[in-house]
């Protein structure tokens, strides 16, 4: 790195942390925006027993899929906020203009988004597991899969959000773009929760989810950065 640049420009790590803190701070100033997707998550899961009937065995069978699908939808709902306000007030252009690699800065925003939307979801999930009559092993598996899976959702979702940020009616379009790409996460995660309930090892599913996370972590920020440059140009 050039020393003259270093003198008056913040370093990359510093920019990364600043952006992360700023996004978190902005989110905590508007707690309703954190709470709403969570509430949605809980309500959607609650609707299923009401629609299907409270038979414990049935609930236990459908629980892994239902909880995970609800998690996908909830994380998608919160995606729109990732770049929207920054795009509207021009902060996004400033981020694009900064001398640091955009993909790293994007990663900071994605991590902030995950801490706001994914992490509370994970903390709340054992409760929903109890609602749905899941055995303890399955609840542990649910938390583990959410821990590995929700970052992937935020990362893949960031690409779709970046592509649609400039559009008026981006919301529905976003779901069309992103949901098909969520399918592998859904498959492995729901299967892990299901298999754990029967008492089998879930190492294979967790490895797959870990692999997906590694892949998304390396590739998604680059694609998101490229998409942002297209959307803002």
């Amino acid at each position: 790195m050039n020393s003259t640049v270093a003198a008056n420009e913040p370093r990359l790590a510093q920019a990364f942390v600043t952006l992360l803190r700023r996004d978190l701070l902005l989110a905590f100033r508007r707690p309703a925006e954190i709470a709403n997707p969570l509430l949605f998550f809980v309500i959607v899961v609650t609707l299923f027993p009401l629609g299907i009937g409270p038979e414990p065995n049935t609930l236990q069978t459908i629980a892994p899929g239902v909880i995970w699908v609800a998690a996908l939808l909830a994380s998608m709902l919160s995606l729109d906020g990732m770049f929207r306000t920054d795009f509207d007030d021009g902060a996004l252009e400033q981020i694009l203009l900064s001398p640091h690699p955009l993909s790293v800065l994007v990663l900071a925003k994605v991590i902030a988004h995950w801490m706001i939307s994914g992490l509370p979801l994970i903390l709340l999930s054992p409760l929903l597991g109890l609602f749905m009559n899941l055995p303890a092993e399955s609840i542990v598996a649910l938390v583990l899969t959410l821990l590995l899976g929700t970052p992937v959702l935020s990362l893949i979702g960031s690409i779709g959000t970046a592509l649609t940020v400039g559009l008026r009616k981006g919301g529905v379009l976003l779901s069309l773009l992103v949901l098909p790409l969520y399918i592998p996460v859904l498959i492995f995660a729901a299967s892990a929760v299901e298999v754990a309930g029967v008492g089998f090892s879930i190492a294979a599913q967790l490895s797959f989810l870990g692999a997906l996370l590694a892949l998304a972590l390396t590739l998604a920020p680059v694609a998101t950065a490229a998409s942002l440059r297209i959307s803002v140009s």
Binding site: I159, L163, L177, P180, L181, I183, P184, I187, F188, F208, L212, L215, L219, A223, A226, S227, I230
Partner: peptide, 18 residues
């Protein structure tokens, strides 16, 4: 173009997971 490229990376993953 970005979407098509993202899709092409994902397609084998989706296929094999399905």
């Amino acid at each position: 173009a970005v979407l098509a490229l993202v899709g092409v990376v994902n397609l084998p993953i989706i296929h094999y997971s399905v």
